[in-house]
Amino acid sequence: MTRLLRGQVVFALGLAALNTVYASQLLQMDRPFANGEPGPAFLPLILCGFMYVASIIIVVGEFRTAAAARESAPQSDVISRIALIGPALTISATALFIVTFFYFGYLVSAAVFTFIVSLFFNYEKSGDLKRSSLIALITAFTVTLFGWLFFVKLFGLYLPVWEL
């Protein structure tokens, strides 16, 4: 089984699992037409049923077209397994940003967030850590300052500064 095929099947099954979580809430609602009206469960019930059927169709379809599904992930000269590491890093950096945004405020969290994102893209392109760090520092300073001027000074919106 190719990696992509395995991913497709796992993702389709993941959607079915998510659908089950969604469907679990249907048990707390009245049956459609129980009171003579479609009710709040009517459309969700149709959608749930469809999602299960669609998941099965996709899984079966993926196995049938297994031979055609041989695709390779893009390769970077600098970062190995970039298709996995890149998304993992940006998702983690975004999650870290949200957490630190609450505790440390906008200036610290935005500076760290933009530094990480910029460092990743620049390092991946050049492979030169020193130069990439310098560009990332300048980017972090510029973007954070721009964000502060834009949101707080221009639009007068509140951003947390230091809530500890």
Binding site: A110, F113, V117, K125, I135, F151, L157, Y158
Partner: peptide, 29 residues
């Protein structure tokens, strides 16, 4: 335009934009 600058800008403006519109960390998540 430098990709690192571009996506750092997009990352910051999108997440802070969500917060600024609702003042809710939940909406950012």
């Amino acid at each position: 335009i430098n990709r690192g600058f571009l996506y750092a800008f997009i990352a910051m403006i999108s997440m802070v934009g969500v917060y600024a519109s609702s003042y809710s960390l939940f909406q950012m998540w």
